[in-house]
Nucleic acid binder design. Structure first.
Length: 935
RNA sequence: GCGGGCGUGGUGGAAUUGGUAGACACGCCAGAUUUAGGAUCUGGUGCCGAAAGGUGUGGGGGUUCGAGCCCCUCCGCCCGCACCA
């Protein structure tokens, strides 16, 4: 066998392992290149062919860059804290660490088969205490820091404490949770707290009081937030785990409950997270997802006085204060704090019923559904700040409590939702736009011309807007305001298998534990306690060793994955999360490859933590991933059989409509070319043992098929191990790259792999005879063979530079086809060919490199360069322009310089045949293969 | 509804800067060969047509000597967000 892939791959896999080929170290004399995969969660199911796609792509680039002389950092690790291992533990009692260890071993085994050039000495695992120690350390720094708006960076809370001691909180402009501050201050100093406190007030506080105040400023803080609590399950549920007021799993009742949770003040970084997007090379769509999620809007906060309630007012946020003259009522979220105060006696019953009704639905549910407008008048009125006209105050669930101030000024002529609300409740729609018919709907056009708007009549909205903000501010009822949709992230989970917080409570005050690492304790069960405390509360000895008690929550999955790319640079450092000299050398990730599904999770949180660590001077850059490619999903091709209802008889695809049939997924391993192996099917499951088949005219059972997501339950999963067994890792690598553009979703087609396998076999035959004898000669290569080689080097190099993985395989195939046709066995051709093959088929490339006399490992073989002089084609046709019109096609040898082309054209064209009988004076050869002739 | 992207043979896709559309591969067809395989080799394969020729990148229009690519418009598909004031 001339291409014995099993022997070749085993041989070189062992060789690389023995030689530690892929270990890298900092080298000041070499330019670095950092190429990173999103590390996997090691699930029990193992890999299917979709998982390695991105890993192969990054490995190709890592190998290519390495051969180009870069010092390449290409690590891999495991995001090993997570829910599946914990659920398995709840069911079986097996410790998640054991499950995780086993799954990692399986992953490693599968990854090793594929020939990746990872430096495994740098492996990280988020569940490793030596790793999560630093995750806890970052949390501690976040706890100890706040965000100073003046300096636009994170600063130690200690600096704020000094400022408070001297000037209270009036002089410093730090990001502050106003609700948290308000609650704490009210508890300490009484109801009339107006947002500021003095140095005397501060200095008079005890430790608990100060702690409560400082919580409003910390980047990691404790706060009461409303969550979906399921008492039966003893845990908090995410909004999408709640359906119709009951838990999605089990159907237990869910209540909305305020719970004290750790939060991350990511909102402090909202502006920088937004502007930082401009400087990084990510896809437009994922940047757009992040922009949308951050949701910056600029406008004003306006205050409306309430009739009969002097001193209190309703604050609303609006991006369109230019439409203020069209505002004729206010709408509050049902949860708005003023609702109870302002509701009139006549409306109280109706309002309370409405509030009750909305409270029983989750926010998610309110947002979905039929969009029918609901609401209720409070009976109260606000006063229009310009005209003093009374404006009825309504409550409605289309206004969200969590956004802006939880209240809006309704401008039914300018906002579709307000318009619909006005229609539903028979409210007036004052027209404020010239030429706009308000019976049709609202007008959102910012270029519309205003009317009925006092001094602004006749002006364009977009021109009025800045003026409206300015004038309202001067009049004292408004101030400019920027609002973000982004909300602070809940950082607590009531789970076991996550990072424990380095926090204990001393007299109720949350306090950092920094003198020793807080390790995840052993527990006797992985469920919450009877009291509803998280599983960590079961670890009684662990719990009581500090303060009153330890923190029982653990950190969410995204904690460990927010900074792992840094740890690879210095994975064994026991004194720091990453030495500054190492992070300065390796710097940002140059190429990050992974799925697009993390747009608002991992990718946002790692940007946040990176900026924070940059503020602290831990690292010298503030964006983690300079360039990112999101690979598309590989879809499976499912096969179906058609059972006649109520029988055990199956008809083929062609006949399925002649009967009442039921479509069933069948395992694709039993199907070849859409034909079912009926014997295999009978023995697949007992219920099919006596299945009858009605075959088609060709005497075979033809299955139906469909492209859908790969999944166990659809029996359409292709396992990489099987394919490596049948075709080898090199074939699988090439084929996955050949499938199509990396970013696109594409169906898997196992039949297609034969073509790529044939290519590698054909390639091998250039070097080896069928008996395994060397065929490589030292004959001088023909010009033709050189042209093929240089053309291939050029194409492969250019395609890799623009990250076009799939076209590279085609280029290699074409080269091999041509060389095979020529019968080329020349060392001068085949050695460089092995070198450029290496990124895609590293095992075979090593074999062929050594067979063709290459020195050392092909992994370090310098990337060949192409010589344009060798790229001579016989003739090229140029379209020729004469006085602006293309008159004829001119053929010229392709290796001529522009000057030679010019002379050739002049010489020929002077006959004047194609040039209206005129002799040209000048010939201009321009790129794009067009020749301009000036008459 | 808003935002992002896409539309090319039977299939996956190529065409990099506006310059011979369909490279490369699968599938299919025909032939060869054989120890009958999920093997190998050779040739063919966009569509219509016997051929000459015509036609062709979702539809229509435009710019250009020239459009898969640029502009306008309509249709269809995918992804993300979705009452964000």
């Amino acid at each position: 066998m001339e291409y014995d892939f099993k022997a070749i791959e085993a041989k070189w896999r062992q060789h690389w392992k023995n030689n530690g080929t892929y270990a890298v170290a900092e080298d000041a004399g070499k330019e670095k290149y950092y190429v990173l995969d999103m590390f996997p969660y090691p699930s029990g199911a193992g890999l299917h062919v979709g998982h390695p796609l991105g890993y192969i792509a990054s490995d190709v680039i890592a190998r290519y860059k390495r051969q180009q002389g870069f010092n390449v950092l290409h690590p891999q690790g495991y995001d090993s804290f997570g829910l599946p291992a914990e659920q398995y533990a709840i069911q079986t009692g097996q410790h998640p660490a054991i499950t995780t260890e086993r799954n990692i071993a399986r992953y490693r085994q599968q990854l090793d088969l594929l020939g990746f050039s990872y430096d495994w000495t740098r492996e990280v695992r988020t569940s490793d205490p030596d790793y999560y120690r630093w995750t806890q350390w970052i949390f501690a720094r976040l706890f100890e820091h706040g965000y100073d708006r003046t300096m636009d960076k994170a600063r130690p809370i200690a600096a704020l404490v000094s400022a408070f001691a001297e000037q209270g909180n009036a002089a410093s402009d730090w990001v502050c949770g106003e609700d948290t501050l308000g609650e704490a201050a009210t508890a300490l100093w009484g109801e009339d707290f107006n947002g500021t406190f003095t140095a005397d007030q501060w200095n008079g506080l005890d430790g608990a009081g100060r702690s409560a105040i400082l919580m409003a400023y910390r980047l990691a803080y404790l706060a009461d937030s409303e969550v979906n609590w399921c008492p039966a399950l003893g845990t908090v549920l995410a909004n999408d785990e709640v359906v119709g007021g009951r838990s999605e799993r089990g159907g237990h009742p869910v209540v909305r409950k305020k719970m004290r949770q750790w939060m991350m003040r990511i909102t402090a970084y909202a502006d920088r997270l937004l502007s930082g997007l401009d400087g990084i090379d990510w896809s437009d769509s994922i940047k757009e997802v992040q922009r949308n999620w951050i949701g910056k809007s600029t406008g004003a906060q306006l205050r409306f006085e309430i009739e009969g309630h002097p001193g209190s007012g309703i604050e609303v946020f609006s991006t369109r204060p230019d439409t203020l003259h069209g505002a004729n009522f206010l709408v509050l979220a049902p949860e708005h704090e003023l609702v109870a105060d302002i509701t009139t006696e006549g409306q109280r019953e109706a309002v309370e019923a409405y509030v009750q009704e909305t409270a029983s639905r989750s926010e998610r549910e309110r947002m979905a559904g039929d969009r029918g407008m609901t609401g209720c008048a409070t009976g109260a009125h606000a006063l229009h700040p310009l005209t003093g006209a009374p404006m009825p105050i309504w409550i409605a669930d289309y206004v969200l409590a969590g956004y802006g101030t939880g209240a809006v000024m309704a401008v039914p002529a300018g906002d579709q939702r307000d318009w619909e609300f006005a229609q539903a409740f028979g409210l007036e729609v004052p027209p404020i736009f010239e030429g706009h018919d308000i019976s049709e709907g609202a007008c959102g056009d910012k270029d519309a011309i205003l009317c009925n708007s006092g001094e602004w009549n006749g002006m364009r909205c977009s021109d009025v807007l800045p003026r409206a903000i300015e004038e309202s501010t001067r009049a004292g009822f408004a101030r400019p305001r920027v609002n973000f949709r982004l909300r602070d992230a809940v950082f607590s989970r009531q789970r076991y298998w996550g990072e424990p917080f380095p926090i204990c409570y001393v007299d109720g005050v949350p306090t950092l534990i920094e003198d020793e690492q807080v390790l995840l304790p052993e527990v006797d069960a992985y469920l919450p306690t009877e009291d509803g405390d998280p599983p960590l509360a079961r670890a009684e000895k662990w719990n009581v060793r500090r303060g009153d008690r330890m923190e029982f929550n653990t950190m969410p999955g995204w904690a460990g994955s927010s900074w792992y790319f840094l740890r690879y640079m210095d994975p064994h450092n026991g004194d720091a999360l990453c030495d500054r000299s190492k992070s300065d050398y390796w710097g940002q990730v140059d190429l990050y490859i992974g799925g697009a599904e993390h747009g608002t999770g991992h990718l946002l949180y790692s940007r946040f933590w990176t900026k924070f660590l940059h503020d602290l001077g831990i690292i010298g850059f503030d964006e983690p991933f300079a360039k990112m490619i999101n690979q598309g999903m590989i879809l499976g091709r499912s096969s179906f059989v058609y059972r006649i209802e109520g029988t055990n008889t199956f008809v083929t695809f062609e006949q399925r409509k002649e009967h009442r049939t039921q479509r069933l997924h069948v395992d694709i391993s039993m199907v070849r070319n859409d034909t079912l192996d009926t014997d295999a099917f009978r023995s697949w499951r007992p219920e099919f043992a006596d299945a009858e088949f009605i075959l088609n005219e060709e005497g075979r059972y033809r299955c139906g098929s469909e492209v859908e997501k790969m999944s166990k339950s659809k029996y359409n999963v292709e396992n990489p191990d099987d394919l490596v067994e049948r075709f080898g890792a090199d074939t699988l690598r090439c084929y996955e790259m050949f499938l199509g553009p990396l970013e696109q979703a594409k169906p898997w087609d196992t039949q297609g792999i034969n073509g790529v396998h044939g290519f590698l076999r054909k390639l091998t035959r250039l070097y080896l005879g069928s008996d395994g004898a060397d065929l490589v000669t030292d004959n001088p290569p023909s010009a033709e063979a050189e042209r093929t080689l240089h053309k291939t080097i050029k194409k492969v190099t250019e395609d890799l530079d623009r990250l076009s993985w799939n076209t590279v395989v085609s280029a290699l195939m074409i080269g091999v086809n041509e060389l095979t046709e020529m019968g080329c066995h020349d060392r001068a051709i085949l050695q460089p060919l092995a070198a450029i093959l290496s990124p895609y088929a590293p095992h075979l490339a090593e074999e062929l490199w050594s067979r063709s006399g290459g020195q050392g490992s092909v992994v370090d073989a310098p990337w060949p360069t192409w010589d344009s002089a060798k790229l001579v084609e016989s003739e090229v046709r140029y379209p020729v322009q004469f006085n602006g019109k293309v008159r004829f096609q001119f053929e010229v040898a392709a290796d001529l310089s522009p000057e030679e082309v010019e002379n050739a054209v002049l010489a020929d064209a002077r006959t004047g045949k194609q040039l209206d009988g005129r002799a040209p004076r000048k010939v201009i050869v321009v790129p794009g293969r067009i020749i301009n002739i000036v008459g």
